[in-house]
Design a protein around this nucleic acid. Structure first.
Lengths: 347, 347
DNA sequence: CTGAAAGCGCTAACAG
DNA sequence: CTGTTAGCGCTTTCAG
């Protein structure tokens, strides 16, 4: 594994703190002081050092700092599929939140669902000295073990019902289902089906339960139920199965925008009109939903707030076991039967 | 900037190489040897060390290694918008290619188009000791300067027409335009318009020239031309402008799938039928294109190959100024007027 | 075939 | 207010 054309060890910039000290005519420590503001020096000295830094184009060596401090000021984030727009958005927001605190993110994909693969990726992150990790994948005992053993704090993001004793931030899935089902009911539908995402994790019950509860509470009927992977392809398959079965309910709650994209394709191909033949409310609130046809009514997750909260939790120290639940909000568009240009309003 | 609950400096795992050496009853150096395979030791010693490592759960400290080696075995990648599925896919592929070589990626967004912002992000990457960076943003003199000054190798990815003397890998834009226009012409269209992406960079000429040349070469007529930001919203606006102008050409080459998504929305809203009223061929070949309605015929970039090539170039040392151009390929779907289920074939 | 020792560049405690 | 110093954990040359 011989890497990138290796400049020799210290030639990264060539200039070290000692060079700066020499040029400024102060001690090496003084340089550290002005850089880190550890100690107040005389303005004059400060000025001289700053000048030298500028002149030399000095940039502190992060590796040395990391070694000394035991922190690389880096966080890891692991998502099931970086290619899914929802996770792309989430990762992006997390990066911004981390950036505000001077931290960088190393993002890794859990991709290969092979057992133990996550743990492997996690090992990598840990050995890289990340100061914390955000898991957007529900931690298997293995995963959690790796992290716990290394003493690396973590929080789960968007992973409902994780059994660990760590902080977890997510959205209220049952409430989301309720909002969706309620809205569909308001459009006059009495039978409401569900297309649910098949995650490797155990959030399924929660989703299904939320839907069941909401349907029941409204005195409506549960319609057909399909489980499918959280991808457009999964939604497409589910749609195909549903039309083939001839059990198309008049309304459907689809548990992710990605799923809905695929569903729409299946429906278009088979002449099933949305919302006339079947009304749809999706979940997630990605930008994509706006550009489907018809534009998707969707229950949006407050992604930025969730990202901020996750980072916050990591920094705040372990609010052990705390669970932060955010409220999703309905974004009305046309897949549910709402007219275009209806100003947003609740209920 | 006090960070994550800081375990004290060395408590990351607690166990250091010295602990391993002690338990195995060998010297510290021996441990390094078996880990890095620097030197062959007696199988017996090797075994003992391996055991100790396992028993202790030892994991080498990357920061120390980075400090010593002058390399963090990390690469940076900077994209204009991580939220754009095309870049998400590209980043993902790059991460995989880097991972194969034991490198991690730190991804940063150029986001805020504020001048100098990139340079700032780049500084961050450099100070982090990345061993190289992949620029998916065309390097301003500033950016290049930061990198050159620090002696950090970089390659540009997907940035046609960059003026630097660095390796650049991208797709043949003119050929892409040719393929698209030719296909549209084969559907019998004589006038072909263009919706082009407005990047902050200067790739515009290339795109426009490619289209002009192709149209001309086929003896067709250039139709309306719209420039718009590389986003669905941009495509939507462009679509709105085009229908408002009443100058809708019968065929359109759209220079990105994202743009096309927005365009489709505008067309749907105004009852413009695709492909009957206007035939579309897009560019990029993201998964999204498959789930538009109608499914988008698009000229696909070989993303994985490009990512691999970029990483390869970084590792191969500076193939100074070399430009690697990949050939795009037509993916036929229905937005151009092709029937469904037509088996792929060229021409 | 193995071990001792010299730093990589930086921070922070401690002296002056 | 400023400077000296002792490592952080690791790699690698050089003796044994």
């Amino acid at each position: 594994m011989n890497g990138v054309p290796s400049r020799s060890a210290s030639s990264r910039t060539g200039v070290t703190r000692d060079d700066v000290a020499r040029l400024a005519g102060v001690s090496a420590a003084a340089v550290s002081y002005v850089i880190n503001g550890t100690k107040k020096l005389s303005p004059e000295t400060e000025e001289r050092v700053a000048d030298a830094i500028r002149k030399l184009g000095y940039r502190p060596n992060r590796a040395a700092r990391a070694l000394r401090l035991g922190s690389a000021e880096t966080l890891g984030i692991i998502v099931p599929d970086a290619t899914n727009p929802f996770f792309a958005a989430l990762t992006h927001e997390v990066e911004i939140a981390a950036g505000r605190r001077g931290y960088s993110m190393i993002a890794v994909n859990a991709d290969e669902l092979a057992a133990g693969y996550d743990a492997h990726r996690l090992e990598m992150l840990v050995s890289r000295g990340v100061d914390g990790v955000i898991l957007c994948t529900s931690p298997s005992p293995d995963d959690a073990g790796v992290l716990e053993a290394a003493g690396v704090p973590y929080v789960t993001l968007n992973q409902p019902g994780t059994g660990t004793r760590r902080t977890s931030v997510g959205v209220d899935l049952r409430e989301g289902a309720r909002i969706a089902v309620e809205h569909l009911a308001q459009h006059g539908h009495r039978t409401i089906g569900l297309i649910a995402g098949l995650s490797s994790e155990g959030a399924r019950e929660e989703r299904e339960a939320g839907w069941r509860a909401a349907v029941q509470q409204l005195g409506a009927m549960p319609g057909a139920l399909e489980w499918s992977p959280f991808t457009p392809a999964g939604g497409y398959e589910a749609g195909l199965r549903m039309v083939a079965s001839g059990e198309l309910p008049p309304a459907l709650f689809v548990s992710s925008d990605q799923l809905a994209k695929g569903l729409l394709k299946a429906f278009h191909e088979h002449g099933v009109r949305v919302p006339e033949d079947v009304a749809l409310v999706a979940f997630d609130g990605t930008e994509d939903a706006e550009y489907c046809w018809p534009p998707l009514t969707t229950v949006a997750q407050p992604v930025a707030a969730m990202a901020e909260a996750a980072i916050e939790a990591l920094f705040d120290g372990e609010g052990a076991g705390a669970t932060q639940v955010f409220a999703p909000v309905l974004v009305r568009r046309q897949s549910c039967g709402c007219p275009r240009d209806l100003p947003a309003q609740s209920g």
